[in-house]
Design a protein around this nucleic acid. Structure first.
Length: 376
RNA sequence: GCCGCCUUAGCUCAGUUGGUUAGAGCACUGGUUUGUGGAACCAGGGGUCCCCCGUUCAAGCCGGGGAGGCGGUA
């Protein structure tokens, strides 16, 4: 472990890439899936349990931690890693997603975005400079530029204006970040679903220069077909020798499709959120544990899964604790979903290393075609 | 025995001066979730309004009778 963050590509197979991001806090194997721990916790999971699923890195959030308990407090308490008991790498989102998701609670200007807290209504200014400061106070290993996640659908004119402002903010983020050995700053490409805008955005980010490059503004309601159309060209516009991070994606088939198109990192709330709401991801697709058909089923969610929920509990038990709103259901299903996602990533890394990614993809889709196991 | 209160969806209950196809919560059956405002949200099925008679253009609602339940009192 050196004191710089480096990216090493170990194998490629078609556009798919496998490698390692080395950081002072440990390696991140790519393609990587980053569980989302917005408020200094992956909900319903202990950090050691998240690690046990195979996660190398977590995602935290500038906006939420700024509001509560505040970046300054976390800094005084020794930083986010110590605070939440996760010593491995953390990537923090800049608050750019909340510019979109909380659009009714904010006012935007060239300078930045003023949010009214969804917790107590208090006013908080987020700018590129402030976002960099907060992420520094948190001790984030991979810092994201402050941007606007352009909503979908956006007209060409609106998308262009949004993208260009995000690029100006990218320059300001770069300037404010400065030189911080051991910490990385990632730029974020925007441009909605317009190829010329994606190209302009990528060019601008390359001119500024970043440690990694994200693809933003996707998985915002456009659907997989359009998202894949963009991913057919957008990753190729970014430097080959730096990690490419597709923000906020996605469902398992989104992830496989993204890796096939040259993406190295992803994050998504789905495995954790769905775990809490009863939706389960398996090799054979999704199932909902609350469905009545599971009530008497002694079989595990997935015979071949090695997570605690599958090793030690039946569908009938998981169904029961979900219906009963017992807290353990969130724990077990989140664990399973995160485990499944990490298994999926490991499978892709192995397949790329072996030059068998196409075969992996075919088997992935074939297993899902089968659907869930036969009802009893 | 007498007095009072109650009876509407599987459960707990709303139902205005009588006025379209009688509602809610929970339960039930499904669905949704993509850089977490989410232990969240959406949709659907389900009723001989205890029974009978009457008044009325019209009764869950008003009147009479009956049945069942709860409480009080001899």
């Amino acid at each position: 472990m050196g004191d710089r963050i480096t990216f090493t590509l170990n194998a490629t197979d078609g556009k798919a890439r496998a490698g390692v991001i080395s950081t002072p806090r440990g390696d991140i194997r790519t393609p990587a899936f980053m569980p989302v721990g917005t408020a200094a916790t992956v909900k319903a999971m202990l950090p050691e349990s998240v690690r046990a699923t195979g996660a190398d890195i977590l995602l935290g959030n500038t906006y939420h931690l700024m509001l509560r308990p505040s970046a300054e407090r976390i800094h005084r308490l020794g930083g986010l890693h110590k605070f939440m008991n996760w010593q491995r790498p953390i990537l923090t989102d800049s608050g750019g997603f909340q510019v979109m998701s909380l659009s009714s609670l904010r006012k935007m200007s060239e300078q930045g975005v003023q949010f009214s807290s969804h917790i107590d209504g208090s006013k908080h200014m987020l700018s590129p400079e402030r976002s960099m400061e907060i992420q520094r106070l948190l001790g984030s290993d991979i810092v994201m530029c402050f941007d606007e996640c352009t909503p979908h659908p956006a007209s060409e004119a609106v998308a262009l204006e949004s993208m260009r402002m995000s690029m100006r903010w990218a320059q300001r983020s770069r300037d404010a970040f400065g030189d911080r050995p051991g910490h990385a700053l990632f730029g974020i490409q925007q441009g909605s679903c317009f190829a010329d805008q994606r190209a302009e955005s990528a060019q601008k980010l390359r001119e500024i220069g970043f440690d990694g490059y994200a693809i933003g503004g996707l998985a915002v309601g456009e659907g997989q077909e359009i998202m894949f159309e963009v991913l057919d060209y957008a990753p190729d516009m970014l430097p080959k020798d730096r990690p490419r991070y597709l923000m906020g994606v996605g469902k398992p088939d989104d992830i496989v499709g993204a890796v096939a198109r040259g993406v190295d990192m992803m994050d998504c709330v789905l495995p954790s959120r769905s775990g809490r709401t009863g939706q389960v991801f398996t090799r054979r697709g999704v199932l909902n544990i609350k469905n009545a058909r599971h009530a008497d089923d002694p079989r595990p969610l997935d015979e071949d899964c090695s997570c605690p929920a599958c090793r030690n509990y039946s569908r009938a038990y998981l169904h029961h604790v979900f219906r009963s709103k017992e807290i353990i259901q969130s724990m077990l299903l989140t664990w399973h979903n995160l485990h499944y996602y990490q298994d999926l990533m490991q499978g892709m890394r192995d397949a790329i290393a072996a030059g068998e990614f196409a075969k992996f993809e075919a088997e992935f889709h074939a297993a899902r075609q089968q659907g869930d196991i036969e009802p009893l």
